[in-house]
């Protein structure tokens, strides 16, 4: 009994914080399933009679057509993740394979990018992108996102590749493997856990990013999910249920992926904290 009482303050603190996290997220889902009047009448209760037509309005191809934004986000995100993994792993392989000052210099070159906040560069980046005639193309967002994310990718992948047993790589060369064979058949498969970490990091950052789409995608057909949500805010500020149906739809993929692959999410997103 005394032990139970002694544990109470701890349990209370943990419970309060759990409620603080759960309430805003639950209210978003609750609200998305009410009618506007139902929401005004009882804004906090779970929906008694789920109103799926709010979602219908968001996905309606004649209306908000959120599928378009989902597709746009998916294209941008998939290309970014793929390029970050490909370029990041090639750079990391080179840094881990060659020795001496060239390796150090290359590593410093990539990781130096950690010092950079993209917010600082929004004006010059916009100028470069418009000089390249890339405004209103997905390539603009992908190119800039890859450049911004490569430092972390190189940092994580190089660290992992350096820890691989050197004998294994030497043996492959003795067996007559080319540099490309060793990279593709030995190093990449062994680096899979680090790949997962980097992929998740890149996935979450890109899927959720507002800044680069805001700067470079200036027509409605190209808008990604965060941009679409920002526009819904203006349109539906008096119709919360529709607005939050959009928020829920945009959030489900990340939350589902997080629940399925928690460990990699935690690793991937705290890898960002190495930035300093």
């Amino acid at each position: 009994m005394r032990r139970f009482l002694a544990g109470l303050p701890r349990a209370a603190v943990l419970l309060v914080f759990a409620v603080a996290i759960a309430v805003p997220l639950s209210l978003v889902v609750f609200t998305s399933l009410k009618t506007a009047n139902g929401f005004f009448a009882s804004p906090f209760s779970p929906p008694s009679d789920p109103q799926w037509q709010n979602y219908g309005r968001i996905i309606d191809p004649e209306g908000e057509n959120i599928w378009r934004a989902v597709l746009n986000s998916a294209i941008v995100t998939a290309s970014t993740v793929a390029l970050v993994l490909l370029l990041g792993s090639m750079a990391a392989y080179a840094i881990a394979r060659i020795r001496g000052w060239r390796s150090t210099a290359l590593f410093a070159f990539f990781v130096g990018g950690l010092m950079v906040a993209p917010q600082v560069y929004m004006t010059p980046l916009f100028v470069i992108i418009s000089q390249l005639q890339l405004v209103n193309t997905f390539r603009a967002v992908v190119l800039v996102s890859v450049a911004v994310q490569l430092p972390i990718a190189v940092l994580v992948l190089t660290g992992f590749m350096r820890s691989l047993p050197q004998e294994l790589i030497d043996a492959a060369f003795v067996d007559g493997g080319s540099e490309w064979d060793v990279y593709r058949r030995i190093v990449v498969p062994l680096t899979r856990p680090a790949f997962a970490t980097v992929a998740i990091f890149s996935l979450v950052i890109t899927w959720n990013d507002l800044l680069f789409p805001l700067l470079f995608l200036r027509v409605e057909e190209l808008r990604t999910l965060p941009l679409a949500l920002l526009q819904f805010r203006g349109e539906y500020l008096t119709n919360y249920p529709v607005l939050f149906a959009g928020v829920t739809l945009a959030t489900i993929p990340m939350v589902a992926a997080y629940l399925a692959m928690q460990r990699y999410f935690v690793e991937g997103l705290t890898a960002g904290s190495l930035k300093g």
Partner: peptide, 21 residues
């Protein structure tokens, strides 16, 4: 895992959730 959850949600979505709050 619960406390970490908001980290994976877009800042835009989090912002809108708090407009509601």
């Amino acid at each position: 895992a619960l406390y970490f959850l908001p980290t994976v949600v877009a800042a835009v979505s989090v912002g809108l959730a708090w407009i509601l709050m």
